[in-house]
Design a binder for these strands. Structure first.
Lengths: 212, 212
DNA sequence: CTCAGTTTGCGTACATCGTAAGCTTACGAT
DNA sequence: ATCGTAAGCTTACGATGTACGCAAACTGAG
């Protein structure tokens, strides 16, 4: 039968026209356009052009634009966290995570509003952070508390990045060639706030332990 | 002469048709639509309908949609901060500010992405927070340090609100009738992170003073 | 080699959006 | 009455996301 069967192929069943497009290629191209021309420029037609394909062809691989943006978010977050060295006690590992996350956000400034709008899927996020969670467990911190600490820091990092890439430069163009003074200011602010948070949590958890 | 004179009236010069629209009325209506139907529904035509006016009439009072959104952001932020009691030492006043800010964000969940995307104008924000800044000065904290502390907390509050209103309920509808369990979870998380931050900064500033 | 069957990509079409331009309406002053 | 002016309206355009059905490109069966 020739049922509708619209949307979504079954992966790589034999037969059929060979695919030039894959979800991965689409996401990668989306990041390219995003970095080069900003979020507003990331239209379906523009993305098709980047891939040498018509806009509608994309819909064979993604349900809609919003889902694509969600994929981009997941991709970028993974990119930041995957190559993260999680060793040592949590008060050392946690700032490394924060720095890696922030590094990714500043490397893709146009993506920051996206991360704010399309939160990383909870399941996926947790899966990517098991290594970090282990560092808390190793110090006897409960899963619940570890989650609060990590999420608080993540939320701070994203909020900080939003403030940094918020308005200063234009909202487009390849590289605004950041003002080094402003960069230093944001860097110092970031470190100060992060340190306050981490040491605050250290004190909190220590006190809790003592009171066990 | 009948020069173009397009865009922007000069306030209230005599003569001319009486205005049914004002920037204030427009912003207020925008908040209504936003709260009731979400950000996607806040189109120029919908907003015009809310005011009993054609979409294009709005452009006599605002330059474009994005500027309107910026006005909405400023309006909401002022609303949150204006009725804020700023007394006592900063470690007490700061959490009150955080609570007021968060209260506003949770009262207007559909506006949270807006606050993330259209940062409050720096000048305006500072002007609204002079009272709070004074509480730091009264404790001998430098203006620079006070800014870092306040901004860090603000950034945390916004990031946290983004996480809370991010995905759980639908993205529209008047009131998703929040799940009380989820609310309690987010409340506890918020308090814990905020406390860590504040006590962390307290320690930081105290140490700095001791080392003066 | 031919012909189903199946999957991918394309062309067309439409509703909706922001907003540019010029016209009409409703005032106060003369 | 008439005029000048500011506010609001009508019409129109280009751009966007995406629904729908067709065309192309492959695999395996006969």
């Amino acid at each position: 039968m020739t049922q509708p069967a619209r949307r979504r192929s079954q992966g790589s069943g034999r037969g059929g026209r060979p695919a030039t497009l894959t979800p991965e290629r689409i996401v990668a191209a989306a990041v390219e356009v995003l970095d080069a021309e900003g979020l507003e420029a990331l239209t379906m037609r523009r993305l098709g052009a980047q891939l040498g394909v018509a806009a509608m062809s994309l819909y064979r691989h993604i349900p809609n634009r919003d889902a694509l943006l969600a994929e981009v978010v997941t991709h970028l977050f993974s990119e930041a966290v995957v190559e993260l060295e999680v060793t040592g006690p949590w008060p050392e590992a946690l700032p490394r995570f924060a720095a890696a996350y922030r590094g990714m956000l500043l490397a893709h400034p146009h993506a920051v509003p996206l991360l704010a709008t399309h939160p990383v899927d909870t399941e996926t996020g947790l899966a990517l952070l098991t290594g970090l969670l282990d560092r808390f467990a190793a110090s006897g911190v409960s899963h619940q508390d570890a989650l609060t600490v990590i999420q608080s820091v993540a939320v701070y990092v994203l909020g900080h990045a939003l403030a940094q890439v918020g308005t200063p430069p234009g909202t487009e163009g390849p590289a605004p060639v950041a003002d080094p003074d402003a960069t230093a200011f944001y860097d110092r602010w970031f470190e100060t706030g992060l340190l306050a948070m981490v040491s605050g949590f250290e004190g909190q958890l220590a006190g809790q332990r003592a009171r066990h």
